[in-house]
Amino acid sequence: MAEFDLINRDPNNINNHLKVQFEDVLAEPEGVRSLDCVWKLSYKCFTCWKSLCYFIMSTCCGICLAAEWGCQFSYIAFLHVWNITPCFKILELNCGFLQKLYGLCIHCCLDPMCEGCGLIFHKFQKN
C-alpha cells in the first residue's frame, strides 16, 4: 500500500472550493459593528462548531461512505473493463468496415463522374 500524506490530505486540490473561513461567511461592514467580545466569541464558536461537527460526521459516516465510494468506483471500473470498452471496440471495428465500404462506393461512383467533368471543363479555355 502506498503511503499517503496525513498533513496535506488534498494534494490534487480537488476541494479548494470548500476552504471556508469565518471571514468568508461573516463580515461586518463599516458603520455596523457588534461588541468586540461578541465578534471574538462568534469567531471562536464558528471555528469550533465547524471543526467539531465535521469531526463527528466524518467519524460516524466517513468509513461507511469511503466503503460505498470504493464500491461505486469498482463498479464503474468493472463496467468499463467488461462492457463499455468491448462495446467501443465493436463500434470501432464496424465503423472501420463501414468507412472502407463508403470509400469504395464513393471511389467507384463519384470518381469517374468527377474525372469526366474535369476533362470537360479542362477543354474550356480563355480566349
Rank of each mutant, 00 (worst) to 15 (best):
M1G: 00
M1L: 03
E3S: 08
E3G: 09
F4K: 15
F4L: 14
D5M: 12
D5F: 09
D5Q: 11
L6T: 15
L6F: 13
L6K: 14
L6Y: 14
I7A: 15
R9F: 07
R9H: 06
D10Y: 10
P11Q: 00
N12F: 11
N13C: 12
N13A: 11
N13V: 06
N13S: 13
N15I: 06
N16E: 13
N16F: 06
N16H: 06
V20P: 01
Q21P: 01
E23H: 05
V25I: 12
A27M: 02
E28H: 05
E30M: 06
E30R: 06
G31Y: 00
L35Y: 05
D36A: 10
V38A: 10
W39Y: 11
K40V: 14
K40R: 12
S42Q: 14
Y43L: 14
F46T: 01
F46K: 00
F46R: 00
T47H: 04
C48A: 00
W49L: 12
K50N: 05
K50M: 09
S51L: 07
Y54E: 05
T59K: 11
T59G: 02
T59E: 09
C60H: 05
G62E: 10
G62N: 13
I63R: 14
C64P: 00
G70F: 09
G70Q: 14
Q72I: 12
Q72D: 09
F73A: 02
F73R: 15
S74Y: 11
L79P: 03
L79C: 13
V81A: 07
V81G: 00
V81D: 08
V81I: 08
W82R: 06
W82L: 08
N83I: 15
N83M: 11
N83K: 12
C87F: 03
I90G: 03
L91D: 08
E92Y: 13
E92K: 10
E92H: 14
N94K: 15
F97N: 07
L98S: 07
K100S: 10
K100M: 08
K100P: 02
L101G: 03
L101V: 11
Y102R: 07
I106C: 04
I106S: 02
H107S: 12
C108V: 07
L110S: 01
M113I: 06
M113C: 04
C117E: 03
C117K: 02
G118V: 01
L119F: 04
F121L: 10
H122E: 02
K123D: 02
F124V: 06
Q125M: 03
Q125I: 01
Q125L: 04
N127Y: 09
N127E: 12
